[in-house]
Design a protein around this nucleic acid. Structure first.
Lengths: 144, 144
DNA sequence: GTTGACCCTGTAGCGGCTACAGGGTGTGTC
DNA sequence: GACACACCCTGTAGCCGCTACAGGGTCAAC
């Protein structure tokens, strides 16, 4: 399998595959007589594993840790759990902060009356508010 | 005001201020006899504006666009609305995908029985599933 | 005169790719 | 044989928003 074929099979960019090889995540494949990379089924499996982890937003360093368990089936896998738990906590923290952000943007958006001159723009005024130490619609009484 | 004082007043790192100057977001201040940056109130206002936008996760390029309206109060501000709307849409899209991610991670986490050997690890098996074209607990019947 | 806190410039690093530049190879068509 | 075109190679730089040095200068206090 040439790199382009692997890329299509795994729905990944060619450059991404070379990048994974460079950082040691995907083992370097054999080379054909012309120097082209020649991949085997194992590479597709590994790449699919990586992409699956990435779809779960798991950092590449953590993917590398998970791959070590794949390579060593006799290892204790408690760390795998912990890693997924940490990932889940990270996602939930980000969800919380994005929800707050959404509320703030909605509040900010509501400041716009009829669009006119910047001088009268409620949104810009709100964005400037904390400058003066005032409360702002999005961040409440005490800015920051 | 020296850069360290400005940094404290705006709750920003010194390096961040120099970075904003370098990319043209914060105007270069006057210099004292010793070459130190000497900031005026205007810089604090502008920096607070920038940080407020950043707290709303507005990209620096968009902050620059907003600052142009601050500098030209007679301009039409329809673009300000549009920018906030776009930002809100971005945040909501990210929220959606994070919520899906959360569900997937929870499903994945539930695959762990008692932690033991990696060979028996339900989580690792699920992460490997799409490799074989199987359905996986987190991505449903048809992986990818 | 020495310590320590601050300031300066310039550059490199983070993550996870993405996008070249500048070349080689393989296949098909004229 | 000549050409086009798709693909492959290596190496490097760019994206974002900082952050963290290295290697130096300045200033006030003790």
């Amino acid at each position: 399998m040439k790199i382009g074929e692997l890329a299509k099979a795994a729905h990944v960019e060619v450059e991404t595959i070379r990048y994974y090889e460079r950082i040691g995540l995907l083992p370097a494949p054999a080379r054909s007589h012309n120097g082209y990379r020649a991949y085997a089924g194992m590479h597709l499996e590994r790449l699919a594993f990586i992409r699956h982890c990435r779809a779960l937003d798991i950092a590449l360093a953590d993917v590398a840790r998970l791959l070590r368990f794949v390579d060593d089936p006799s290892a204790e896998c408690g760390e795998v759990d912990a890693l997924i738990d940490t990932q889940l906590a990270r996602v939930r923290a980000r969800l919380d902060s994005l929800r707050t952000l959404e509320d703030q943007l909605v509040a900010l958006r509501s400041q716009c009356g009829a669009p006119d001159r910047a001088a009268q723009c409620g949104i810009l005024h709100e964005l400037e508010a904390p400058t003066l130490g005032d409360a702002c619609v999005c961040h409440g009484e005490r800015p920051q």
